[in-house]
């Protein structure tokens, strides 16, 4: 028996918004410690890694490890039926071929349940090595989304260049060039407004706008985003999900000019 009850059901709705453009389907690996999802987009250029710890749920039971293959467009349709203040429970029997979503309104006057068929997915799991990154940049997530959106008008790629002075985002194309420089913030009233750069060595890498923009669909999950870069390895874009866990996106850098 698997059962996970999330009082802040809106978080699950936001997680769905954050992954559904990138992935058509994904396996939710449910274990005693919580729920994990790892899946690459169709072109294998980017990867989503979602971690929801059991401690984040107000009720969590997982008697046996369970892999639930879900069609994300179907799951998204179902989660759209939940109100933002609904409590959401996911449950499944061992070896079941369906999962049930139960939505409870805060005062319990409306309770809905939706059963969805599971699909068998033969997904490749990748081993992601522990990496000490040369540059770790923290910035407001809305600022990052704005930069990706603005620079996408200029070209297909964004160059992210991190030095001890700060971080520079650049794009170039037919209409011209664009550069956005962010300096580390000295003092801020709110920690979530800070720009922080932890640099061991300067790094400059180029990434496809299309994917960066899809990652920024996670913006509502967290006020801050963390970008980790090292020369010639995939970028990590991480959004914390309150006290529950995180969503990380990996993106292979573009090579060449």
């Amino acid at each position: 028996m698997f059962e996970a009850r999330l009082v802040q059901g809106a978080l699950l709705k936001k997680v769905m918004e954050a992954i559904k453009e990138l992935l058509n389907e994904a396996s939710f690996d449910c274990a005693h410690s919580g729920i994990l999802l790892q899946a690459m987009d169709n072109s294998h250029v980017s990867l989503v890694s979602l971690n929801l710890r059991r401690e984040g749920f107000d009720k969590y039971r997982c008697d046996r490890n369970l892999v639930m293959g879900m069609n994300l467009s179907s799951m998204s349709k179902i989660l759209k039926c939940a109100s933002n203040d609904d409590i959401i429970t996911m449950k499944a029997q061992d070896n079941a071929d369906t999962v049930t979503f139960v939505f409870e309104s805060p005062k319990q006057e409306k309770i809905s349940d939706y059963e969805m068929k599971l699909t068998n997915l033969d997904q490749d799991h990748l081993g992601i090595p522990e990496t000490e990154y040369s540059c770790v940049i923290k910035l407001p997530s809305a600022e990052f989304a704005r930069i990706c959106r603005d620079l996408s008008q200029f070209g297909e790629s964004i160059v992210i260049s991190c030095t001890k002075e700060g971080v520079k985002f650049s794009a170039a194309g037919d209409i011209g060039t664009a550069n956005i420089k962010l300096a580390q913030t000295a003092t801020v009233d709110k920690e979530e407004d800070a720009v922080m750069v932890d640099m061991q060595e300067p790094v400059t890498l180029t990434f496809a706008c299309k994917y960066l923009n899809m990652f920024t669909k996670a913006t509502p999950l967290s006020p801050q985003v963390c970008l980790s870069m090292s020369p010639d390895v995939p970028l990590v874009v991480e959004y914390k999900i309150e006290d529950i866990g995180h969503i990380r996106y990996y993106l292979a850098p573009r090579i060449g000019d």
Binding site: H44, L126, G127, I128, R254, I255
Partner: peptide, 14 residues
Amino acid sequence: ASTQPTLNDYFKSK
């Protein structure tokens, strides 16, 4: 022109 490698070039299948 730039090329776009896949993640399989960096991470190995488990």
